[in-house]
């Protein structure tokens, strides 16, 4: 119990240190609300993906295809909005694709038995290719969608300033936390990552649970694509590709173990914030953009070392 809180506290301390550094060195940027509004606008995208991927990592699975699922879903969303002029049809077609893409990954991993890292590298190409074939490579613009209800609901500016996507991501974080740590489904996930054989012996349907996890990832990737497409009022063939590193960095900075069986939603949440503010902080400090990667590296390594240290202490 105590050990668990040390994780959460250490990650919070890292965030606090970084923010303090930014505020003291460039107060003219970090004491203004504007920069925080921009964080609230864009951090939710990688955060939703990271939150959704965390249970998969805990179950010792991985999904590398989510960027490509996002590309296809975003295309389906934008194109069906243009074709049917109906945001709800577009929304459900889009999530429907996410469902089937996740199911597809899940079946290949669970029923055929291909390790998820390999299976999803394959499907990543498949989906990316699909996006290219469907779109013929041209970007889609859906400027008119900014006027729609769904745009207000998911990416509108509530009270004139608050980006709605932030609300949805917080809601999702709470929900996934409850499911992972308070619901019997989450219990199964934890045990599958810890000792799959034991989970089987205790009557957990490990196949079904893992397939559901992949489906969940597919649907949330699609949902993220909806948010992204609404925010940009635009779809690009490369959409999604930029999130791969950010999402994994968020999860591992947060303290979720690569070995499966344990993880933290709070950690992923804070991890995504840390990853989301670094680049702009570096730019504001007037440093060269080339430093961004270097500092990502430093922070990831510090975080991972701190976590490993705590982990080892707990194991004595």
């Amino acid at each position: 119990m105590k050990e668990k809180y040390i994780y959460q506290i250490s990650i919070l301390v890292i965030l606090f240190v970084i923010l303090t550094l930014f505020i003291t060195t460039v107060p003219e940027v970090f004491l203004q609300s504007r920069i925080y509004i921009s964080y609230l606008s864009i951090i939710p995208f990688s955060m939703i993906l990271a939150l959704s991927l965390t249970p998969l990592i805990i179950a010792k699975e991985i999904d590398l295809s989510f960027p490509s699922i996002m590309a296809v879903s975003g295309y389906i969303f934008a194109q069906s909005y243009l074709s049917f002029d109906n945001t709800f049809i577009a929304f459900f077609l889009c999530l429907g694709f996410g469902f089937f893409a996740g199911l597809f990954n899940g079946l290949i991993v669970v029923k055929i038995g291909v390790p998820s890292i390999i299976a999803t590298i394959g499907s990543q190409f498949l989906f990316r290719g699909l996006a290219m074939i469907l779109s013929g490579g041209t970007a889609l613009s859906i400027m008119e969608i900014k006027e729609s209800f769904i745009s207000d609901l998911f990416t509108g500016r509530w009270f004139g300033f608050f980006p709605a996507q932030s609300f949805w991501v917080i809601l999702f974080a709470v929900l996934i936390w409850f499911i992972l740590f308070k619901h019997k489904f989450g219990n199964s996930v934890l045990f599958i990552g810890d000792n799959k054989k034991a989970a089987n012996m205790m009557g957990i349907n490990t196949d079904k649970t893992r397939i559901i996890l992949f489906i969940q990832m597919g649907i949330m990737s699609s949902f993220c694509a909806v948010l992204l497409t609404l925010e940009m009022a635009n779809w690009w063939p490369t959409n999604g590709e930029g999130y791969l590193l950010l999402v994994f960095a968020s999860i591992f900075i947060g303290g979720t173990s690569v070995f499966g069986g344990s993880g933290t939603i709070f950690g992923t949440f804070i991890g995504a914030i840390i990853i989301g503010i670094i680049e702009s902080g570096i730019i504001a400090m007037g440093l060269d953009g080339f430093y961004t990667r270097f500092i990502y590296g430093v922070i990831i390594l510090i975080a991972v070392c701190v976590h490993a240290k705590i982990l080892n202490k707990g194991k004595v």
């Binding site: 489904f185 219990n187 045990f191 810890d194 989970a199 012996m201 009557g203």
Partner: peptide, 25 residues
Amino acid sequence: SVGLEQEIFRNIFLGREITNTFGFI
């Protein structure tokens, strides 16, 4: 047949958790 990284109580009730109607433990 135990999950080492999980708490004792979760191990005891694995697969037949004491839950409410919505499956929350």
